[in-house]
């Protein structure tokens, strides 16, 4: 089955993509670029670098802009899925949703309207096992956004390796947050994945941070040999 992967550049969508590649054919990546920083559906830091990640993966990217108005952005999602269906013949869509009924419901509805299958291979995943598998499989993930206490500026740009995962475990337990950041505490950016032919090197980045709210803006990045 030919599939398109809803793609934000973060760990969940890339891991879901990798899962999908093991069972079906991933024909393209699909990104909805939201102008609204408050968008619940689509906003992520560094979404513009999705094109570089797609190049690293050797997959075509369908990119659609949205103003990010609450329900209207679903029309833009529909436009993106239609474009992917027309250009690459996708029969289904893969998402990296883990717990968000809000996001999953909306994607399911649009997929159903278009007669597309919807796959959520991380749905209700065991978060501990997922994070372990992420690291063991060779994903290299950096923290590109922090949006709640106790994640301060020092977390921006950190790679999620074993040491960081250990600290995240302690925080998840103490502050009752998810280990994966699914509650919106963290956003991530993937610089390498098992299916990347090249990895991404961050050449220049800046931090915008205030009061447990900040992003790592990747100003310049390129592909390098693995």
């Amino acid at each position: 089955m030919k599939l398109g992967v809803l793609f934000s550049g973060g760990k969940d969508s890339l891991f879901a993509c990798w899962k999908a590649m093991q069972k079906e054919e991933v024909a393209c990546l699909i990104t909805v670029v939201s102008q609204n920083p408050e968008s619940y559906m689509f906003h992520t830091p560094n979404i513009r670098l999705a094109a570089l990640q797609a190049e690293a993966a050797g997959l075509p990217l369908v990119e659609v802009e949205t103003a990010g108005e609450k329900e209207e952005e679903l029309l833009d999602l529909k436009r993106a899925l239609l474009a992917a269906r027309d250009r690459y013949g996708i029969e289904g869509v893969v998402t990296g949703a883990i717990l968000s009924v809000y996001q999953a419901t909306r994607v399911q509805r649009v997929c159903r309207e278009l007669g597309l299958w919807c796959f959520n291979p991380l749905w209700l995943a065991d978060q501990e096992a997922y994070m372990e598998e992420l690291i063991d499989s060779g994903f290299r993930v950096v923290i590109a956004g922090v949006f709640s206490s106790p994640f301060d500026e020092s977390w921006l740009g950190r790679e999620i390796d074993r040491r960081t995962l250990g600290e995240l475990r302690v925080i998840a337990k103490k502050y009752q947050v998810t280990l994966t950041g699914e509650g919106g505490e963290l956003e991530t950016f993937v610089v390498d994945a098992p299916f990347f032919a090249q990895r991404i090197a961050i050449e220049e980045a800046s931090k915008v941070y205030r009061n447990y709210n900040g992003v790592l803006r990747i100003e310049r990045a390129g592909l390098v040999a693995k």
Binding site: K19, A20, K23, V94, F119, N120, P121, W123, L124, A125
Partner: peptide, 15 residues
């Protein structure tokens, strides 16, 4: 058997 949907619909019950 062993489909992409397995992780979504079977694995949560197994866990």
């Amino acid at each position: 058997d062993g489909s992409l949907s397995r992780d979504e619909f079977v694995a949560p019950v197994e866990r």
